[in-house]
Amino acid sequence: MSSLSHHPDIPEQASPQQSASTSLWHLLRVWFALGLQSFGGGSATLFMIRRASVEQEHWITEEEFTRYWGLSQVTPGINLLCMTILIGWRVAGPIGVAITLFGLLFPSVSITILLTMLYAQVQQISFVQAALHGVIPSTVGIGLLLIWQTGRPLVVESKARGNAPLAIALLVLLASVLVSLYTSLPVILILCGGGLINGLFLWAYQRWLAQGGQA
């Protein structure tokens, strides 16, 4: 915990603005603004969190931001919430977590619910029905981009590890498509199975390399 919970007004990082920025009210205001303004999805929100916590408030350093983001990628749940929690913890411990989470989520969750309510009110209108026939394929198109953006780094990373890890990675990808398409196996099992197969293979492969195998 010690590495996480040291307070930002420790001498090495102290600066005139920081005594003000540690006030909880200020913390709430900053995160509330982030939750309210961050239209445009994940990368826009991440950009704003970075600007606020690294450049404007100096809560964390550039390096810490990068490390936190890497960690958020592998922690269960939404990356941005993981990030928010780590920064909140870093600034003011458990109360910091509560404040940053509330600040980020209250405006954005409220707006999401209001938008959905609004949609639920108008969805039966035939004009809206017709529009939906175009909106739904658009979400599929946006989803495809999401697949491309998240999938490509994983494939590139596997390729950098060697041809055999690349082949296994592609196999895991293909198998997860086929299994989910043609069986009723719970998705959780497919996800864990994909992780285990790839993890065990990579482990064995690295051991084999370490014992003098040729990549």
């Binding site: 697949i147 895991v172 997860s176 864990c192 790839n198």
Partner: peptide, 17 residues
């Protein structure tokens, strides 16, 4: 390596499903 591989494999399976 097992941890790195697991994280990659999990991500790939998410993409697939």
């Amino acid at each position: 390596p097992a941890v790195q591989g697991f994280v990659t494999g999990l991500g790939l399976a998410v993409i697939g499903t």
